[in-house]
Write a protein that binds this DNA or RNA. Structure first.
Lengths: 111, 111
DNA sequence: TGTCAATATGTCAGTGCTGACATACCTTCG
DNA sequence: CGAAGGTATGTCAGCACTGACATATTGACA
């Protein structure tokens, strides 16, 4: 995929509106990014609720701290599969995740 | 992942109950398989609603008929990313998908 | 029966994702 | 200030996923 760099910039620059506001993503790309962002947020929320550091979570997942950071940053090198497996490993259920996905993410305000 | 073969058998033998009934999947594995199955079913439903053949859908996705078949079969070689991208390409929204995920899939009855 | 369209299954080369590692950034505490 | 704990970012070898192709199976219609 050649959109990697674009998506990377997009993910990083995410500050004000929703995903599709940046760099004219197609509707389906926007939906996908949106989906991933929801999962990322859910993961961080769950980790913090369990009072785990990224290092501790990484150990539990058999992964590394850097990957956990990238998961939570919704980095384009992270797959939805990895995000889902991580969430399930933290005890999330498909229903819970569905519920999180159903409610649109909160918007961030410009600094 | 070494569970690939196991998952393959599992996906194929899926007939009577839910995913976790086979080969003692761990809860998180079961949840993941369950999640994928929901997406697979959603994809087939959507494709058929649009009166597209697998070949036609494959062309639209820039993929192949065999991959579409595997997506709909929830084959272990198919990622959630691919399933999601395909659904979004067919016009599904994150909310719609979330709604599908929220309702547990129908059970299949033994032949 | 045979043919045709649709779907399923198997294989593989190329590429994208993963875990690991290094390193930088940022707070908090002394 | 320096040290320590937590988080972010960049890179890379190795493996998992992908599209493509071949082939098999199924179902409908004569």
């Amino acid at each position: 995929m050649n959109k990697t760099k674009r998506a990377k910039l997009e993910a990083r620059g995410w500050v004000v509106g929703d995903a599709k506001d940046f760099l004219r993503l197609s509707p389906e790309e926007a939906a996908f990014v949106e989906f991933k962002l929801s999962l990322s947020e859910a993961l961080r929320t769950r980790r913090e609720a369990l009072h785990l550091s990224q290092v501790a979570l990484a150990k539990r997942l058999g992964s590394s701290q850097s990957r956990v950071a990238k998961m939570e940053a919704s980095d384009p090198t992270v797959s939805v599969d990895l995000l889902l497996r991580s969430l399930f490993a933290l005890g999330a259920t498909p229903r819970e995740i569905a519920a999180k996905l159903y409610r649109p993410r909160k918007r961030r305000i410009a600094a």
